[in-house]
Design a protein around this nucleic acid. Sequence first.
DNA 1: GACTCCTGATTACAACTGTAATCAGTCTTG
DNA 2: CAAGACTGATTACAGTTGTAATCAGGAGTC
Lengths: 121, 121
Amino acid sequence: MERIAEGEYAVMEVLWERSPLTAAEVAERVPEQRGWSLATVKTMLSRLLAKGVLAHEEDGRRYLYRPAIRREDYVAEESGRLLDRMFGGRLTPFVAHLAERDRLTPADIEEIETLLKALKS
Amino acid sequence: MERIAEGEYAVMEVLWERSPLTAAEVAERVPEQRGWSLATVKTMLSRLLAKGVLAHEEDGRRYLYRPAIRREDYVAEESGRLLDRMFGGRLTPFVAHLAERDRLTPADIEEIETLLKALKS
DNA sequence: GACTCCTGATTACAACTGTAATCAGTCTTG
DNA sequence: CAAGACTGATTACAGTTGTAATCAGGAGTC
């Protein structure tokens, strides 16, 4: 699966949320912080099509775009990549690390414990 | 803190492992899979210096390089970035996700549970 | 002192990214 | 039918990255 760049990912998010959509509709839904013009969104769509992570079907003289890969699959790959790169693929050091950096609240800890308990059964 | 590219990261790893080192020493220690020439490693070192994530001290007519940022800090930033982007910054969905994707072995689960128990006390 | 070697510095160059503008073709509307 | 409007396609252009080669200056060697 081809890498998806940071900006391109924002477009994928829109389409994972809801699809199919036209280019104009995608542009409307991209977070405004990006401040993208319609032209920029169209460039992104073309590149994502070229990468094979989007598909399009004709709808009159325009296209309807939809994801060609599942969000979970992409996320799995990306997070695996980070885990491999930074923690040798091991999750425990990652969790330990987050805990140290105060990214884990007591509520989080409870939640994860519950989750793990469920996983064991 | 400036972003560190994938390839540059390999150089940082070497120096986090052991420093200070000369350019030649770094080149020797970079994983061979990369297949980098000494010239490539020197380019990386220059760019990392420019980004301010490496420092160098003179040693005769050459430099000794050492990290200017701590590994933990960089890793914290990078993993936070991924977590924000893919899981809205929440760790629990991430752990759930890993579990689903079979990246969590029973041993991992045990280990994390122990870790969490320790965190609570 | 001339030549070679080592080292950082400078330059190279293509692919990928961010961020569009412009072009060309089709629909709509007066 | 002529003039706009809307859409994808093509082109643009600078910054980053991967991957070096080349250059210039000092150090050691005959």
